[in-house]
Design a protein around this nucleic acid. Sequence first.
DNA 1: ACAAAAGTGTTCTCGATACACCCATGC
DNA 2: GCATGGGTGTATCGAGAACACTTTTGT
Lengths: 222, 222
Amino acid sequence: MTFCYDYARPAVTTDIAVFTIQDQRLAVLLIQRGGEPFAGHWALPGGFVEADETLEACALRELAEETGIQGVWLEQLYTFGNPERDPRDRVISVAYFALVPMASLNPRAGSDAQDARWFFIDDLPELAFDHRDILDLAQHRLRAKLDYSTVAFSFMNETFTLGELQTVYEIVRGETLDKRNFRKFVKSLNLVEDAGATRRNGTHKPARLYRLIQPGHLHYIR
Amino acid sequence: MTFCYDYARPAVTTDIAVFTIQDQRLAVLLIQRGGEPFAGHWALPGGFVEADETLEACALRELAEETGIQGVWLEQLYTFGNPERDPRDRVISVAYFALVPMASLNPRAGSDAQDARWFFIDDLPELAFDHRDILDLAQHRLRAKLDYSTVAFSFMNETFTLGELQTVYEIVRGETLDKRNFRKFVKSLNLVEDAGATRRNGTHKPARLYRLIQPGHLHYIR
DNA sequence: ACAAAAGTGTTCTCGATACACCCATGC
DNA sequence: GCATGGGTGTATCGAGAACACTTTTGT
């Protein structure tokens, strides 16, 4: 079956940059492409928009199909439409980005993907298409959003220590922060509560655990 | 001639929200649609992406064709992809927004448009498609951008008074500002210089004229 | 005992806010 | 002379930055 139109139409895809924190470093989820073009290259998960699904539904579906990851919060990033970005054909890609808790999700390869795994953001392989540009923009947006929203909490597990949270801020911003100022800042947000437990985690004082008062909510600050 | 593909493809358009300031109010450029659907309704200028043009080039071309406006600075806003947003067919629209100097451009109707003119943002007709949503988002983004960039200067003519600039801020933010604090703020940016002239403008003291030191540059502040 | 991360307050600086009067012009 | 917008300075407040020591645990 073929689909015919009076004018040329571009193909439309979504691509998704999923970030997490691993080993105290920022990591992104990539798949290894099974088919041409760029067979064997690493790329962002994503794929073609189907006739009756929203762009966000497409992104969620492709993410689940190619990596097994489900139910993440997505934000639209930018739409890439350079006519040369796909060597085969005119393809316009609506890019999304997402953050998932530290090391919580084990990706597995799915359809169209030979493999799916986390890469550190500062140690990436060569990427297919313009996915490197997409990733750079996503990282830029993530850094900016840290300053005026509570995105960083999306990286946290259900309970977490303030030290872990501070590490996330330090990793994304690429600079160290003062511990006392950081804790003052977090407490002034009034978004976390004491989870009533501590975690022993090595040869030092146990850390108090906190949880979000409204899990899943993104807040705008400043 | 027809174009055939193995899978269904959406049509892709760009739509552009062009803002200006008129009579101390925020205004947006709309066209009256000539053809179906929504014939006779007012809508944002825009149209289908051609095979070999970038999304931004498409937006600029459609804007010129439909309204005669050329050479404006565009920023990508958001991509609207709800499958129901166009009653005919699946159409995905990449929305852009732009700011042009106060009352500087006289739109004229062009192809596919019976008419093109400015509407005050708080006195809009019923709009075609989901263009009301696009406009609401554009206005929201404009307001937000005022706080961390110098977008407001895009509304200004080559020379302008600080009173005019303050009025722009007041219109977009919807609140009055203190004159002394505002002037202190503008001067602290170090982005404007004295144009060495004044403008008589009614029954009061003439106002000093300023100009941008780097015209056309958008700066990020804060 | 010692190494290693957890936890805790005060001072200072700077940008943002609040606020009131004189000036130059047209009528 | 009076109405109208142009133009100017100072005091206050609050958020962000700088900064050092004690606590608890594992080995």
